[in-house]
Design a protein around this nucleic acid. Structure first.
Lengths: 222, 222
DNA sequence: ACAAAAGTGTTCCTTCTACACCCATGC
DNA sequence: GCATGGGTGTAGAAGGAACACTTTTGT
């Protein structure tokens, strides 16, 4: 048989921003191969289950969070022979951008799941590569889409949104110009009318996500 | 068994520009299901064959063209249960942007392959959806990458490159501003020193692709 | 000579960038 | 009051849009 009958899995690149750093949810492997190493969460696709459904199910199982809290999309598919020593496994990777969740991982299936810095290599399988692709996709998408809001809770300040860009892009942005850009871009954010004092200083207005799906013109990386 | 052991295929969205229209290479199906209907070329991934390699092999078999002639990238993966009535088939779709090839399809495996308009629906399986995703990806990539040159032969004029944008975006662009934008953008195109008269009028300089992989600033759709 | 396409120059306008400055709060 | 972060105003630079105009060919 020369056909490629393969096991199909989904792997999740779950990104969030915690303590000012881009972090990814990893699980410590409890079985061989790569026993004890960090890996992306994921699992086998069930019979008669669509790929997106399997990914959403794994997301719920691993984090206890509804996928609609953030943003969720297919990333890419990896099927190099030998990428899994147990046999032919093709994995469809999904990328999720999530707000910093209150206490998500604790009550979930994956007892050993943990948020880790997104730039640490050393993951099992080809997960370093998948993670790097996911981070690069996130970086690129912030330019021409309003997806930075996916990293924020339902209500957020402009400074918090700017923090997302600064963290993901590893850059400083001018607070004044960023404020103008974001609040005048059609459909990016909408004022809620409320405001809060986050730290010191003047209270900041709170915003929620707007209806736009594309940024015109884009917010380009410096 | 609740695992999703699936046949893995690659499907190709091969786009080119012929006679002023965006066209896609389709094959007429000679067997059930969808007998007689148009479909994207593709086939099963072989044992011990990487996905990209399988896609490049199918490209060569279907068109007789070296994949390096144009541009080639993974598009997305489709695995909805029931998308193939014969059983569980997960397909990894690839997108290629190719120059208008001299006489490619004639001498190839797929006797019934043909360039067809890219906006005609009615394809077999879920290929309408895959094709639409490929066209949308191509449209978006022209904005922030120099991939429009992938639709051109090794040497091309600015007017030919503009024709690519106008065809893919279904838009008119100002020839004067387009010329300036393209020739001043760092690394987009390089003059060859030669020139040709394509039709009437003053001869046009010939250019080749430059080394840039991103367009800064991008060329946004009107 | 004329039509047609290539290419340059110029003007206006929008957007980006940098930064001065005012506002509202905690301490 | 003073430090700190939120937010507005504004001048200069850069890039986009519109278009007059010159160049170089085929017929």
């Amino acid at each position: 048989m020369t056909l490629y009958m393969a096991a199909v899995t989904v792997d999740l690149v779950l990104l969030t921003i915690r303590r000012g750093a881009l972090q990814v949810l990893l699980v410590r492997r409890g079985i061989e191969p790569f026993l004890g190493q960090w890996a992306l969460p994921g699992g086998f696709v069930h019979d008669d289950e669509d790929l997106d459904v399997a990914a959403a199910r794994e997301l719920r199982e691993e984090t206890g969070v509804d996928p609609t809290a953030g943003h969720f999309e297919q990333l890419a598919t990896y099927g190099t022979p030998g990428r899994d020593p147990r046999g032919r496994v093709v994995t469809v990777a999904y990328l999720a951008l999530l707000p910093d969740l209150p206490a998500p991982v604790a009550g979930s299936d994956a007892a050993h799941a943990e948020w880790r810095p997104a730039d640490d290599p050393g993951l099992a399988f080809d997960h370093d590569r998948i993670l790097a692709d996911g981070v690069e996709r996130a970086r690129a998408k912030l330019e021409y889409s309003p997806l930075a809001t996916a990293f924020c809770p339902p209500e957020f300040t402009v400074a918090e949104l700017r923090g997302v860009y600064e963290t993901v892009w590893r850059t400083r942005l001018d607070p004044r110009n960023f404020h103008r850009k974001v609040t005048t871009a059609e459909g990016f954010v909408e004022p809620t009318g409320h405001s809060v004092t986050r730290d010191r200083g003047r209270p900041a207005q709170l915003f929620r996500r707007g209806p736009a799906t594309l940024l015109h013109p884009p917010l380009l990386r410096p």
